[in-house]
């Protein structure tokens, strides 16, 4: 990574203008992965002087500023109340305190990293993103857009719904990337099932969700069938951490366990 010039943004407007001046300009968020990239950035736009480091409760949502370090999510009581706290729980398993003091929620979302343990719970929680120019969009919509955004993420918005939830990170050591991660929530009687680190970026399992959400009540056989739908329909792949087949089996087992936990939690 080479950075030729540095620009400390004075407003979101200013950040947006400098960012869009050239394809070679880029926002620097926390900077956790900066060094591992081989890019040359003409002008790095730093948002760290803007008031984007906060976790705020409004009447019906919890808003996380894009420059909020992940460690603040781990310590947030407001976020602990949503879906049994799967977001703080998932984030607390990302490396150590010091890295989490550095890396930001904005960088984690905009990077669309395949290995992300942040995107998986967020996708299961009806998350909205607010960009400076584009305004509000949903997380699934953002993830479906190809390529790099030339907008500036302002905040991540989570509806304040109690709900219930399950998160599982399968990793070989606490420091390692996930071999697979699974998040399952139930909000207003609707289940969401998300598989991440497949190793590609997190995704909803639409088939399994349609199946469980179409049932009046879930029997153990139904959970098993839903887990099979995940294994069959979600696309898994291989990388040096695990084979495709291994990931498929993990997805099957943890979807079943997660659905059971979420189902029984409310009964």
């Amino acid at each position: 990574m080479k950075i030729k010039n540095y620009h400390l943004a004075t407003s979101l407007q200013d950040a947006y203008e400098v960012l869009t001046e050239s394809r070679n300009n880029a926002i620097v968020a926390g900077g956790g992965w900066l060094k591992l990239s081989s890019r040359t950035i003409e002008k790095a736009v730093d948002l760290s002087d803007l008031p984007l480091d906060y976790i705020k409760e409004t009447d019906n949502a919890v808003e996380i500023g894009s420059m909020t370090p992940l460690q603040k999510i781990v310590e947030s009581e407001a976020l602990m109340k949503i879906c049994k706290g799967i977001l703080p729980q998932a984030v607390s398993q990302i490396m150590g305190v010091s890295l989490r003091n550095l890396v930001t929620v904005g960088g984690s979302v905009v990077g669309k990293y395949g290995f992300s343990d942040v995107l998986t719970p967020l996708l299961a929680m009806n998350t909205k993103l607010v960009f400076y120019k584009q305004g509000e969009t949903t997380l699934p919509e953002f993830l479906s857009q190809k390529g790099r955004t030339d907008d500036v993420l302002e905040k991540v918005v989570l509806p304040k719904t109690a709900g219930t939830g399950y998160f599982k990170k399968v990793a070989k050591t606490p420091l390692d990337f996930a071999v697979l991660n699974v998040a399952i929530t139930k909000i207003d009687d609707q289940y969401r099932i998300v598989l991440g680190s497949r190793p590609s970026v997190a995704t909803l399992s639409e088939e399994a969700m349609a199946y469980v959400n179409g049932k009046k009540s879930l029997r153990d056989e139904d959970l098993e069938h839903a887990a099979k739908l995940v294994r069959k329909n979600v696309k898994f792949g291989q990388n040096p951490r695990a084979s495709q087949e291994y990931r498929e089996e993990l997805a099957y087992v943890y979807t079943k366990r997660g659905l059971k936990e979420v189902r029984d939690c409310e009964s």
Partner: peptide, 13 residues
């Protein structure tokens, strides 16, 4: 007062 990895903390910041 917060621990951070200095290998990833940009000095300008």
């Amino acid at each position: 007062d917060q621990p951070v990895p200095s290998c990833a903390y940009l000095s300008v910041r």
